[in-house]
């Protein structure tokens, strides 16, 4: 009984790590632009595909390969930064092509949100058109190591996922609260007009935000593909929605909120599955989140924003 509880807790931590990593991207962009970037779940999907191609090339299993063989850890060590950079590039392109022109025209945020939804659909269907409907199976990079204590077991991959999510959270928290660029990010959401008056280039800060958010989606994509090695073009939409809800429950715009919200959702889902049939998972999980939100509509860490005079 006890081992099964601990086992489930670790599963929940891993599952929650994915939600957290994606929710952080939602909350970063929202925290700066007050824009719900609904394409973010699909950027996660693109990240998973990018990691697929990156690792395939690194492993030499693709048409173009490296002239020398790399060890598994080496492949991973290269795949992480490469995937993050390439996914960040996709996110920045989206900002450039879709969101920035609208921002320049000063349109209502609602239209930007709708544009984000469309961008997500374009990414999904673009992928479908380019790569076809067949699923891709992700190669095993990291040799599986199982650590067991008594009857309780833990894989190196699970530890890697959980450790990554925590590390990312700590780094982001430091960037946002301690650095000038982080202060500028927070300042933009409060008063965009005054930001250039401080000598701060708004577009640079916004691009930086998209780089951060998208590279995290890329990292999540890679880790997800390693954990659940089947990729399809629509894998990002449901998990993206859920991560968004996790960010809202945590208090959207707050880094801590996204982190906690992601893990909270992970725990609720895993615990529901441990007790009820798995078909009940989303129904019960979201009912619980609904109750939390109706009690605290601004989310766990959110504060109601005072209107400016």
């Amino acid at each position: 009984m006890l081992t099964s509880i601990i086992q489930n807790l670790f599963n929940a931590l891993q599952w929650g790590s994915f939600y957290s990593l994606i929710a952080l991207g939602y909350t970063l962009v929202y925290g700066v632009l007050l824009l719900i970037n609904f394409a973010h779940g699909d950027i996660f999907m693109v990240g998973a595909y990018i990691s697929f191609f990156v690792t395939a090339v690194l492993l030499g299993s693709y048409t173009v390969g490296l002239p020398f063989a790399l060890s598994g850890t080496m492949v991973l060590a290269l795949a992480v930064p490469l995937t993050m950079i390439l996914t960040a590039f996709v996110g920045v392109m989206l900002e450039r092509i879709a969101y920035r022109p609208l921002r320049r025209k000063g349109v209502n945020r609602l239209y930007v949100v709708i544009t984000a939804l469309m961008c997500g659909l374009i990414l999904e269907n673009g992928n479908l058109a380019l790569l076809g409907a067949s699923r891709k199976s992700f190669p095993e990079i990291l040799e599986k190591v199982v650590y067991s204590v008594g009857s309780f077991s833990m894989t190196n991959l699970k530890l890697l996922v959980i450790f990554s999510a925590i590390l990312v959270f700590v780094i982001l928290q430091i960037i946002v609260t301690r650095t000038k660029i982080g202060m500028a990010m927070r300042a933009i959401s409060y008063d965009k007009f005054a930001v250039p008056l401080m000598g701060i280039p708004i577009d640079t800060i916004i691009v930086f935000t998209f780089i951060l958010g998208s590279s995290l989606a890329g990292l999540a994509g890679l880790l997800f593909a390693m954990s659940y090695p089947v990729l399809d073009p629509f894998m990002g939409s449901l998990i993206g929605w859920k991560a968004f809800i996790a960010a809202v429950v945590g208090g959207i715009g707050d880094i801590r909120g996204a982190f906690v919200g992601g893990f909270l959702l992970g725990f609720i889902e895993i615990l529901v599955m441990a007790v009820f049939p798995s078909t009940f998972r989303d129904l019960i999980a979201f009912s619980i989140l609904l109750i939390i939100l109706s009690m605290k509509p601004t989310g766990i860490f959110g504060v109601a924003r005072t209107t400016k005079i």
Binding site: M183, A184, R186, Y190, D191
Partner: peptide, 27 residues
Amino acid sequence: IALAPEGRHIFGNLTVEENLILATYAR
């Protein structure tokens, strides 16, 4: 060239010190 705009436009979600630090962003 600096402007202290009408209606202040301070960053209310930041502390006083952070507001002043931000103004040195480009320095």
